[in-house]
Amino acid sequence: MHLLHRRRWIVLGLAPALLVYLLFAVFPILQSVYLSFMDWDGLTAMRFIGLGNYIEALQNPTFWNSFKNNLYVVAASVFGQVPIALALALLLNRRIKGAKFFRTAGFLPVVISTVIVSLTWSMVYNTEYGLLNRFLKAVGLGSLAQNWLGDPKWAMLSVCITIIWQFIGLYFIIFLAALQNVPQELYEAAELDGASEWVKTWKITIPMIKETLLVSVILCISGSLRTFDLIYVMTNGGPARATEVMAIYMFNETFSSTRYGYGSAVSVLILAFSLMLIYVASKVFETKTIQEKGERGAV
């Protein structure tokens, strides 16, 4: 029997992680699914209402508003955080002066408390005294100055920029680690062929860290669809629900209105949307892989 198929070892190796995970993550999730079919305020008796909560959510414009806002965050994260983090990782994976300092600085936003991030960025965005508007006025672009967080038109964009900034560091260190996996020999061989930096990055690095790229996109999608903390302290979903995302909507329904069943239904919907988007993302990656393989085969 081949090593790669030794079942007993596989079972033994996966069991501890699976056990803890099943009992303390999957079980409560299933419980939440169960609650989503109930009408329950946590105090009086539960009442089974079938799909009632789901129907209510899907017919509620406030829910769809939070869904739409959430899609902005997903898009900003996937197309903002991942490319910037990748570029940063590629740049700082070399021996340049001060690389260690820059790496630390790049990671810093991830560890700074959300309260501080919110306070400082609010000062940047403030209409009257904010750095951004002052800067725009100073360079003669005063007409572009906006009420960044107070105007429903701009609030979501402003919040997204802060979110991008906050989590670049997370993907940055994931990519940095992955880059250590690319064998130096491949680059050396390519250099002998006279390949440019660009070609090396595109033809060697990216394909080698593809798995990690996909994982990052998955993390990005799941993280953005659950995003809560920063928006909660920075705008509290306002003004007038302009930045209310699904997790905030769900939180308010669960703990202000004390509707555990409805809140659970919204959470299950969040889970379902995440699965759909992740499915799409992995399909996109798959087709790209096939294309690349085809190209390579043709050469």
Binding site: D151, P152, G238, P239, A240, R241, S256, T258
Partner: peptide, 20 residues
């Protein structure tokens, strides 16, 4: 009731930004 508080809280904000 909490649901109505949520509506008036958000609604007042909406009035100030012209959303309702």
């Amino acid at each position: 009731p909490a649901q109505l508080t949520d509506i008036i809280n958000n609604g007042l904000q909406a009035i100030t930004v012209g959303g309702t």
